[in-house]
Design a protein around this nucleic acid. Sequence first.
DNA 1: CTGCTTTATTGACTACAAGTCATTTATACG
DNA 2: CGTATAAATGACTTGTAGTCAATAAAGCAG
Lengths: 232, 232
Amino acid sequence: MSEKRNPPRSPPAPRGSGHRSPQRAVARQEAKVERIVEVAMERFAVAGYEGARVETIAERAGVSKGAIFGYFGSKAGLFLAAYEAAARSFSAYLDAPPEVLEAGFFATVTYWLERTTRLVQDSWIPYRVTLLGSYCSDLHLRREITQFQLREDPPGTRAFVRFGIERGEVRRDIDPKMIVSLVDWLMDRCQDAIVAEELDPGLFGANAQSPEDRHERYMQFVELLRSAIGVR
Amino acid sequence: MSEKRNPPRSPPAPRGSGHRSPQRAVARQEAKVERIVEVAMERFAVAGYEGARVETIAERAGVSKGAIFGYFGSKAGLFLAAYEAAARSFSAYLDAPPEVLEAGFFATVTYWLERTTRLVQDSWIPYRVTLLGSYCSDLHLRREITQFQLREDPPGTRAFVRFGIERGEVRRDIDPKMIVSLVDWLMDRCQDAIVAEELDPGLFGANAQSPEDRHERYMQFVELLRSAIGVR
DNA sequence: CTGCTTTATTGACTACAAGTCATTTATACG
DNA sequence: CGTATAAATGACTTGTAGTCAATAAAGCAG
């Protein structure tokens, strides 16, 4: 019961529909939506899902509360938009520099793990929003997020695993889908742990170690991953 | 800012403190708390964290709303209690029948995986509550849950991994803590997927397959786990 | 058992935030 | 311009977590 969400207003507009004068207005609307999403990301990151207030987001984005509900339908819809923007803002595995890719599948994994630590410090907002998305108790929202990940696969795990298989580094005797799931699961968790460690020490178990410890842990993690999905 | 939770009232009472007449009252109070937790589990399971209303829980447990806040301090506190009760209600790895344990570490993992499917159907309420707990967006709550898992380790993963190492089935060249984390992560995710499949098809990706497919997937999963943490 | 003290319980009340919608304002276009 | 259509506004409604003064129950001394 109680599913009476506002359907989001049809997106900013049908984009230059025949005539050309609306162009300006449409562009302005798109910019507005973008601004709202950006502010929302920041607020969700800082205050958490429940702690973030739609009215505050509206104020800071320079629009009214009504406009937000007009565009996104509900707070959950707004969060979803922020989450998707955050997820899309990250690099895919195969965006690693050529020499890293050249070094292979597991070298690339290592590269991104080491990289994440620094990236989180640089721009923690999208990371925190993804963290919130990973642990969102609203199962309706959870489903949307899962569907989004399956549909868009922003980190490009499918292509990355194919890359690994083609290079002969990843085993072929297991359904690739299973491998993709495993990589997604482990990398998500690992990334969440890194993010949580940076942003919320104590959220995950043992932490607060020196860069050397950290490096050692990454090595062990990749070693486990290699044992699991690497060719024997 | 805005951390003004009610501290939960000191637990039901200091238990038979010197005199003996309070005994009855204390017992009744304990029973009441238990009843509340049970009802709370059911409501959270059915309606989700946000959907569950404290007042309804109070009504069904035959107490006033105030009493709930008296005992648990906040809705989050109540959820935590329900979560802990749910988590404690499951068997630990080493609770498997002797002949299963005899068959070894990975046989035991397989046993529990196959078992979970049926257990979820029998008593889905605690499973759903754990699922909610796994994906709770309130990071404060999240921390409490992590701490609880670390403190109590209800599935007994630490002991189980030690068991595997002692039997010579689990590798010794990696920090056991890392292995414990890996097992926890993978089993949690796998269990969540099973639970979600039963309770909320489509929540996770590919699903709704025949028991044979399912079995096949479990076999592949255990095979990956064995490759990762088994002795070479 | 009785009266007094302390503790537990209650539910009307408050506070606050999501979501609505009649009204106002801006835009499209003849 | 003038009129029609669409977007934006913010005061208002709704619903629920959390409070607290008032009340009931439990403990206890005599």
